[in-house]
């Protein structure tokens, strides 16, 4: 496995930069939308609800409610317990407010997150086609080559990736096909050759053709 370890980070910088850029843009959009949703949902609400004006109004309201109670029950208001009760009510109301802000934000964020996930899935699907399509055609053509069919070609779409690879493979197959075609052309001549010299000449031609290819040394 050691001999297959990659030492270079940038194998095809143009391709790698392109798809890193696309992923970063998608993730940035995700972060902006979700982050913006959280900011607008929580922070802006918090600053509004807990602003000095709001706190003052809340204090007025809790005071007013205590005064209603006192007027209704005809009980005098004892200042110190009154203030302590106000503070307790105020802090529990602030907890209520914060809780309602978070619940509201979560409720608003869920469809946003769901939408963003769908968008990422859709974008990934579209992008993956640009790899999956060419890979499928390459595999199919190599399968055909494995079964002896050297006539297949590649037709990729304008926006497909791996065009260079496909072109290289096509070039290799067509070279190999031309080689096989040469051998096929010589074979009937070899079979029909009348003299040993002519036969040896054809064999030497074939040997020259196949000497071009390196093959693994068979293990005994």
């Amino acid at each position: 496995m050691e001999k297959y370890k990659r030492y270079r980070l940038w194998i095809d910088p143009a391709l790698q930069f392109k798809y890193i850029g696309i992923n970063v843009i998608i993730l940035l959009c995700f972060a902006v939308v979700i982050g913006g949703g959280i900011y607008l949902g929580i922070w802006r609400s918090v600053t509004r609800e807990f602003s000095e004006v709001r706190l003052q109004e809340d204090l007025n309201t809790v005071t007013r409610i205590r005064q209603y109670e006192a007027a209704r029950t005809r009980q005098p208001i004892d200042a110190i317990p009154f203030l302590k009760e106000d503070a307790k009510l105020l802090s529990s109301h602030q907890r209520e407010l914060l809780n309602s802000i978070i619940v509201r934000t979560n409720r608003n964020l869920l469809p946003l997150i769901a939408g963003m996930i769908l968008l990422v899935i859709a974008a990934s699907l579209v992008l993956s086609h640009r790899f999956a399509g060419p890979l499928y055609r390459i595999k199919r053509n190599l399968d055909a080559v494995t079964h002896g069919d050297l006539t297949t070609g590649f037709s990729l779409r304008r926006k497909d990736e791996l065009k260079d690879l496909a072109s290289e493979i096509e070039h290799s197959i067509s070279g190999f096909s031309a080689t096989v075609a040469k051998i096929k052309k010589i074979m009937p001549l070899l079979k029909d050759s009348a003299s040993t010299d002519e036969r040896n000449r054809y064999i030497a031609e074939i040997e020259q053709i196949i000497a071009y290819y390196k093959t693994p040394v068979p293990r005994d």
């Binding site: 309201t61 409610i65 009510l89 109301h93």
Partner: peptide, 20 residues
């Protein structure tokens, strides 16, 4: 309850269930 949140209708300010 005597007082309710104007939007949600939830009880606010730990107010009482009020008969009047």
């Amino acid at each position: 309850y005597h007082f309710l949140n104007i939007n949600s209708g939830a009880r606010v300010w730990e107010c009482e269930i009020s008969s009047v």
